[in-house]
Design a protein around this nucleic acid. Sequence first.
DNA 1: TCCCTTCACTACGATACCGTAGCGTAGCGA
DNA 2: TCGCTACGCTACGGTATCGTAGTGAAGGGA
Lengths: 188, 188
Amino acid sequence: MSTDPRVSRSRARIIEVTLDLLATRGVAGTSVDSIAERSGVAKTTIYRHWSTKGEVILAAIDTCIDTPAAPDLGSLRADLRALIGGLCEALAHSRWAALLPSLLDAALRDPEFAEVHQRFAATRTEPVRRALERGIERGELPADTDPGELVDLLSGAVFYRRLLAGESVDRAYGERIVERVLRAYGSH
Amino acid sequence: MSTDPRVSRSRARIIEVTLDLLATRGVAGTSVDSIAERSGVAKTTIYRHWSTKGEVILAAIDTCIDTPAAPDLGSLRADLRALIGGLCEALAHSRWAALLPSLLDAALRDPEFAEVHQRFAATRTEPVRRALERGIERGELPADTDPGELVDLLSGAVFYRRLLAGESVDRAYGERIVERVLRAYGSH
DNA sequence: TCCCTTCACTACGATACCGTAGCGTAGCGA
DNA sequence: TCGCTACGCTACGGTATCGTAGTGAAGGGA
């Protein structure tokens, strides 16, 4: 009952090429024909595995979700430096970052894409939220701190710089942002 | 040498409908045929005014650029509250906000769209930068303050909340962010 | 009034794309 | 070895889209 190696090979090639095309041409610019051509997998085979273009693309994007390493390092500062620094690196190098603008756009008009984006965002935000709550419990942050606002400030700066301003971000930048934001909450 | 009223009428209708379509269907989903159909202006007429679909869309987007009111209110806090509050309102209600994700995506692959987005971003950030420089001169901010970092934090939080998290932003939220960020720079 | 511009309309040609059908082949597992 | 499954290939039908051509009507300015 194990999977036919031909199946997994086809699927892998299709997903791989689809991700490449998504990164360079975006969701709207990625066609099934181009996936077939670039992957060497016949178009009919693609439709044997997924019944619709949208499903292929969603399946490909789904493979990009990477849970950020979220260790409990014992202090809010250390946790945030690790998390936001990691976010910067992901935004600079990961596949997800390359197709994020396209995903964002698609999510506006298609609930299925919206759901995938939602899942991405949650995966990224959740560890930050947990670190913040630990910080509140430890007294590193005021008890009435709004975690959402902090997430907006931390993640926002990084995303803004990368997506809106079009500049690069690295771990050092992320750590600078963490230091600055912590100061706004009285953490020294 | 004044313009034929028929010309300006056609142009206005085309731009108007194009903006509507861009907001609902995005850049990729907006076709010349649909613009013609919805506007009542013949497709041939559209091509009399612009030689390419891309030019029509760029012309439409161009009309969305609105320079934010940038008064010198005498204090950094007042200036930022006005500017970031205005940004929140623009993100919540303006046409530009509705087509921003699509523009962002298009800018990744087309230098013409990138240039338009660049102009948008500059129009928005420039007044903030100037307010920050005035704040540094007045001593409301440390002399070695990096204005870019502040812009990232202020605008970033707002954009992140609206575009990435998909929640709404209003003037009150913007002002909260301003207060929080100012605290990080020792302004009380 | 009269001429010139702009317009709407229909009809194209060309291309790209989606999703399907049929057929013969090659690889997998028993 | 042998049957079954997945595959590649070619060829469709249907639709959407871009951009162009030609014609006749309507609106604007002198």
